[in-house]
Each structure stands twice: as structure tokens, then as C-alpha cells.
Amino acid sequence: MSKRDYYEVLGVARNAGDDELKKAYRRCAMKHHPDRNPGDAAAEAAFKECKEAYEVLSDAGRRRMYDQHGHAAFEHGMGGNGGGFGHADMGDIFGDIFGNIFGGGMGGGRGPRRGADIGYVMELSLEEAVGGIEKTIEVPTLDACDSCDGSGSADGKLETCSTCQGRGQVRFQRGIFSMQQACPHCGGRGQTIANPCGDCHGQGRIEDTKTLQVKIPAGVDNGDRIRLSGEGEAGPSGSPPGDLYVDVRVREHDIFKREGDDLHCEVPIRISQAALGDTIRVPTLDGEVELRIPAETQTGKLFRLRDKGVKSVRSRRPGDLYCEVVVETPVNLTAQQRELLEQFEGTFVGEGARKHSPRSSTFLDGVKGVWDRMKSS
């Protein structure tokens, strides 16, 4: 039976461009693919026919010969192949069109993969995080083997991989789509080791502990991450190493609590200081500073000390320090102190006492209002 015209097979005009040919082949292949037409001999024949047509028309040289001589161009030795298509990988044609549907296949990139990234958690005090510090760390990792310089080969000799035939990729069929991925035997290198290194057993890597100096910039916060490029695990067979990620964890401080670039702390004062006012000294990360407490200060009063917080690692602008006053009840009183307090308490009598305790008066008035409403209901 005579062959159909290749342009007719794909349903395109004779001046069709490459993109049009690909779209036509995709439609034809999806329609007649054996996986979609199990047991249908006619569909299988049509599928082979459209593959053959696309192989010729997608190649500029063979398309030119076909346009001049038709099917005869590939018969009786014309075209240098005796009319066959054995020199071409039909899977490659199919994969070129459909592979990009899944992002170019599954792991289709050629070449060995880089080494794995590793993580390290570094605990810092608040002072270390705010001021910056350089620390020495030890990280268990896979390092390049010194005996074979990370190649995995004792003598440097390599062989062509028998699984992928040196291509570094293997192709397989999934439904109607042709997929490709890095060769599992050679890891995408296309070559295997003829004489493995005795120290690393051909892996190119050995377990080791790496000692590193890590510089922590001033102003880092809990959860920040520092990347050290190329300090991760060595890649297999001499491929590039991964990275080391240092995750910062800041321990809780005895006095200060950090919120962004601001610091917060509680400042206890005596009842006499709160009532009469005073100037006290409060701690900061730069040393003590004076804080003036005005008379009649109530517990919970917030005082702001500008630029006494943390200098941000990003903006480099310092935050503020917020001091919350807590009026402390005296304990372990002496007889004299107790007597003086009793005398002082004795002065709060009658209606005149209300003006000395505004919050208590407001509270008592509120309670009285609740009782009155309950009685009238």
C-alpha cells in the first residue's frame, strides 16, 4: 500500500512552520497513541505514521529532500539511511514536544546534583545578638575525600555508564507522555567509576566534622538565618557542595524582653518613690542611665527611653527601651516602719481620703452602682 503524503498525515500545509508542525503532531499522537487505544491496530498504525511524518518534516534537511523527491527520497539509499528511521530516537521527538508539559520531565537536568544543604542552630544571649559576635562551631558533615580529591576513583579512570550509555539521562513512558530523569545508576554524570577509592568506597565523600568561624552581625533576632555558601555537604563525585544555614535562637533575658527593635523591662519602685517622686538608675544594654519618676506615679506607667533599644541588622536604626513602673509593696517591715505606716494610714479618714486614691474611689463608685442596680431590679 502506498504511503500517504506526510503533510496530509499531519493535516498541515506544505509551508507550515515548526510550531505548527509540533502542534499538529501533538494532536495526531494524542489521538492515536496506543495507550489511549488499547488493542486497536489501526490506531497503532496511524500513530507510527504520524511519528514518521513528523520526524521527516521537523528535520530541515530531510524535509527539503522530501519536498523535492517525495517518499522516494528515503528509498534505495537516498538520504543515507536506506529508507529507515533507525538512526533517530523517536522517544526524543515525542519527549521534545510533550516533556515541557511537566516542566521538562522529572529531574531531567543533566549532570550530578550538588551537595545537600545542612542546618545548624546557634544559641545566643541577647547581648551577643544585639552586639554581634564571631563564634567557632563544629558541624558534622560529608566532606570531599582527600585520597581521591572527591572524585571517588582511585586512579581517575571512568567508564561510560551502561544504563544511560553516557547520556546522563534515562527516558521512560508514563501514559501517552515520554518522561526523562537523571540516570539513577550514574547520578546524571554519564560515567561510572572503574576503580573505586578505598577510603570513600567510590562515593567521593567521607563523614567528617567541619570547624568554622561564623560571624554574627549585630542586631540579629530570634529566627534569623545566616547562609554560608559552599559550606554544606560536599557533592557526590566532585560536584559542587551545598550551603550551611545557621539559624539564630536568642535565649530569654533576665531583665529585657525584645519586641522587634524595641526592648521592654519592668522597673520596681517603692511606694514612697511613687508618691513623692524620685530619680532612679535603670539598666540598658549600654550601661545604667537616670530615669526621673514624677510624683504620684501609678503602677503600670510606661517610660520611653529613645534609642536605647536594638540597632536593627537591616535598617541600622536603633529602637527604644520601654520601662514599666511597678510599685512594690514593702515586706519584712521593722516595728518602726509598721508604726509609721499605721500612722500614715490613719490620715485616710472620711470623705477627704477619696481625693488621695482616685482609682480606688472610681472602683468603689462602680461597685456601689452595680449594687444599686441589683436592688432596683
Results as ranks from 00 to 15, higher is better:
168 G>W: 09
116 A>E: 14
240 P>E: 11
106 M>S: 09
221 D>C: 07
152 G>I: 10
144 A>R: 04
40 D>I: 04
244 L>H: 11
324 E>T: 15
329 T>C: 05
309 G>F: 09
326 V>Q: 13
107 G>H: 09
365 D>E: 10
331 V>N: 07
234 A>C: 03
189 R>K: 06
5 D>T: 01
131 G>K: 15
75 E>T: 15
57 L>W: 12
113 R>C: 05
154 A>R: 10
209 T>I: 15
248 V>L: 14
212 L>N: 03
121 V>E: 13
259 E>I: 10
370 V>T: 10
165 Q>P: 00
246 V>C: 07
111 G>H: 03
88 A>V: 15
137 I>E: 06
61 G>D: 05
138 E>K: 12
356 H>N: 07
128 E>C: 01
352 G>F: 06
336 Q>M: 09
204 G>H: 06
278 D>N: 14
308 K>C: 11
76 H>Q: 08
231 E>R: 11
85 F>C: 05
299 T>K: 00
192 T>L: 06
197 C>V: 06
144 A>L: 03
133 I>H: 05
350 G>K: 07
256 F>E: 08
370 V>S: 04
270 R>V: 01
45 A>S: 13
300 G>E: 12
295 A>C: 03
227 R>T: 15
67 D>N: 10
46 A>F: 07
163 T>S: 14
371 W>C: 04
177 F>C: 09
131 G>P: 00
207 E>I: 01
367 V>M: 14
179 M>C: 04
140 P>A: 08
363 F>K: 06
210 K>Y: 01
3 K>A: 14
21 L>I: 03
125 S>G: 14
196 P>T: 04
304 R>W: 00
145 C>G: 11
89 D>A: 13
237 S>H: 15
227 R>D: 02
2 S>G: 13
312 S>R: 01
155 D>H: 12
223 G>F: 02
114 R>H: 13
62 R>P: 00
84 G>M: 01
143 D>H: 00
150 G>A: 02
206 I>P: 06
97 I>P: 00
255 I>R: 03
44 E>W: 00
78 M>L: 00
249 R>F: 04
92 D>W: 12
123 E>N: 07
86 G>C: 03
140 P>Y: 04
336 Q>H: 09
124 L>W: 03
192 T>E: 10
293 I>P: 03
147 S>N: 15
291 L>N: 06
234 A>N: 02
30 M>Y: 09
97 I>W: 01
151 S>W: 11
74 F>E: 00
49 E>N: 10
171 R>K: 09
62 R>Y: 00
342 E>I: 15
212 L>I: 07
70 G>D: 08
220 V>D: 11
245 Y>D: 02
377 S>Q: 13
147 S>I: 14
200 C>Y: 10
229 S>Y: 05
58 S>T: 08
285 L>R: 02
359 R>D: 08
80 G>A: 00
302 L>I: 15
84 G>R: 00
339 E>A: 09
193 I>Q: 07
41 A>W: 02
174 R>H: 11
182 A>N: 05
285 L>N: 04
108 G>K: 01
209 T>D: 08
85 F>V: 11
288 E>P: 12
357 S>A: 12
108 G>A: 13
225 R>E: 15
238 G>A: 14
